[in-house]
Design a binder for these strands. Structure first.
Lengths: 188, 188
DNA sequence: GTCTATAGCCTGATAGAC
DNA sequence: GTCTATCAGGCTATAGAC
């Protein structure tokens, strides 16, 4: 029953994400994480040196994924393609990893932890530039972008929407986002 | 320099709201509240028996105000008037008390505290019924309502929108909300 | 209404054995 | 990788003087 290397670390991060989603980042202690895994706090400290390090490791995959979407969007040839790539990419990440998205962008305790460290703000800026294009500066567009980002994070966390499949949620979010941003659906 | 009765309680709740907005509910201790007021923890405990009681008292005004908006909306004669009353009322509360709105609906630690107690869920249900009307059941409308509620809370908290005046934020939020919900602007 | 002092618990974190 | 044992310090909350 020996587990492969790195398995313990992965199990720990999965368990931590579930606890973050349920109790908030500030409301999750090392003891809760250890109990969830059936081990002691010291075992947790063997994998990570500090509590902050765990929180970073939980959200890093999502930030890397956002960066990849931003890369793809910026490489697209036309403004319409950049918008489309950025929007569908962000929605896709949000839908397929709802808990992580909600924890990443909806928790003030997390915001305090990753203040500068992880470059979330940079990716958010790149993506909103790709989506808003020339209108990035005007107030209505800025409000629209914030509304969309915060709303999508909430949609991922809301128990009232937990009954929706990934396909349904993705479809509705894309429709609503395009309406909010006055985007036409792509020809394809 | 004697202060009027109830003044100490009001000052405490004001200070607590500021701290909640800055550090999150879970990240705000009784000691921080006491320090902010320049008194000791025991003085805080003279006003409120528990930490939870403080949190409830901070958000109760917002919940009462939401209930009043729901009352007004349900009393309106037509479906269009109900939608309009509910939407403008909610936006108004959000805009004029941004910090409280963000703390109330954006903090998982607060959500855990007020789980059943304060009837926030009831008011949210009434208001979304008034706004969505007959389409309250269909998935796209439910996603739209969640997107809007979560997005408005985020808009109130986002430092990037702090430069907008109340008038500007109100105007943009109403425009975007109507677009999202496919509502016509009122004739008035 | 405010203070000092304290109880008792839980926290993040460390040391060292296996 | 996991354990037991332990630490100092912060937390909520209480008691009792002024």
């Amino acid at each position: 029953m020996r587990r492969p290397p790195g398995e313990a670390r992965r199990r720990l991060l999965d368990a931590t994400l579930r606890l973050y989603a349920a109790h908030g980042v500030g409301g999750t202690s090392l003891r809760m994480i250890a109990d969830e895994l059936g081990v002691t706090k010291a075992a947790v400290y063997h994998q990570f040196a500090t509590k902050e390090e765990i929180a970073l490791a939980v959200v890093q995959p999502a930030i890397d994924a956002l960066a990849a979407v931003a890369d793809a969007a910026e490489a697209a040839p036309t403004r319409a393609a950049r918008r489309e790539t950025a929007l569908t990419g962000v929605v896709e990440l949000m839908v397929t990893d709802r808990e992580r998205a909600a924890v990443l962008s909806g928790d003030p305790a997390m915001a305090a932890l990753i203040g500068g460290h992880a470059g979330l703000a940079t990716q958010a800026r790149r993506l909103s530039a790709a989506i808003l294009g020339a209108s990035a500066g005007d107030p209505e567009s800025r409000v629209a972008a914030t509304l969309l980002a915060g709303g999508m994070a909430t949609a991922g966390r809301d128990p009232g929407l937990a009954d929706l499949t990934d396909d349904e949620l993705r479809t509705h979010l894309l429709t609503l986002a395009r309406r909010l941003l006055r985007m036409r659906a792509p020809h394809a």
